[in-house]
Computed example of a mutant assay.
Amino acid sequence: MYSSITPLLLVDGYNIIGSWSSLKATRDRHGLEQARHELVETLINYTVHKGYKTRVVFDSQYQKTPSTIEHHSQHLSICFTAWTQTADTYIEKVCAAFFSRQETDHDRIIVATSDRDQYLTAMGYGAEWMSVDVLAKDIQSSRSQVKRKQQSNKRSRGRLLFNCLDTQSQEKLARWLS
């Protein structure tokens, strides 16, 4: 049974980029912007499939800018921290607000990182932790489930022209044939 409140997945963006070999290779060949883009694209469908609200958190990388949040979809947003704030401190504040019940939009918070200190902090505030390896495996599993479901839907429709028609056309054809 699902809760009516959506879980929040907080992703330590640069930690994931530095941990996944495919994203590290993209970062090294094409730069951080492309690696960030690939991470976000990877998370969009996963987020919808799992029923999460996802916030990918990136450090400001020494840019003297205020904190910003970009909404990429209904389910996924990106937070660039203010220049004096790290992704770790941002995630810690969200977890602390959740622990003190100031954060009431979510009944669960899951923190995806390989950072041991971040893991301990998140758990201490009552959030759940997901390692970068588990996140990668869960994303792959989610892709496989979606692919199987799509293939099943294609097979169930069959190869007959009748099955390719919309419902109204199918009804007209059935009346004509009877």
Rank of each mutant, 00 (worst) to 15 (best):
M1C: 06
M1V: 07
Y2A: 15
Y2N: 14
S3D: 11
S3R: 09
I5T: 07
T6F: 01
L9V: 02
L9R: 06
V11A: 00
V11G: 05
V11M: 02
V11L: 05
D12M: 06
Y14A: 03
I17Y: 10
G18K: 14
S19M: 05
S22V: 10
L23K: 02
K24M: 07
K24E: 08
T26Y: 10
R27I: 00
H30V: 07
E33W: 15
V40W: 05
L43R: 02
N45F: 00
Y46A: 00
H49Q: 13
Y52H: 08
Y52L: 03
T54R: 06
F58Q: 01
F58M: 04
D59H: 04
Q61N: 13
Y62K: 15
Q63P: 00
K64F: 13
T65A: 12
P66V: 01
E70W: 07
H71D: 00
H72N: 14
Q74R: 12
H75R: 02
H75Y: 09
L76N: 04
S77L: 00
I78N: 01
C79H: 12
C79G: 09
F80Q: 02
W83R: 04
W83T: 02
W83S: 11
T86Q: 07
A87P: 13
I91C: 05
E92I: 03
K93C: 03
V94E: 00
C95V: 01
A96F: 08
A97W: 03
A97I: 04
F98W: 07
E103C: 04
T104Y: 11
T104H: 12
H106T: 07
H106C: 08
R108V: 02
R108S: 05
A112Q: 04
S114G: 12
S114N: 09
D115N: 11
D115V: 08
R116H: 14
D117G: 15
D117I: 09
Q118S: 01
A122D: 02
A122Y: 03
G124F: 09
G126H: 06
A127R: 04
W129C: 03
V132I: 10
V132Y: 06
V134M: 11
V134G: 05
L135G: 01
L135S: 06
A136S: 13
A136G: 10
A136C: 10
A136T: 04
K137R: 14
K137L: 14
D138K: 03
D138V: 10
Q140C: 09
R143P: 00
S144K: 08
S144C: 09
K147I: 09
Q150G: 05
Q151W: 12
Q151Y: 12
S152H: 14
N153S: 12
R155L: 07
R155A: 04
S156P: 07
S156W: 15
R157C: 08
R159W: 11
L160Q: 09
L161H: 14
L161T: 11
C164Q: 15
L165H: 10
L165Y: 13
L165C: 09
D166L: 00
T167W: 10
E171R: 15
L173W: 15
A174F: 15
A174N: 15
R175H: 12
W176C: 07
L177A: 11
S178Y: 14
S178D: 14
S178H: 14
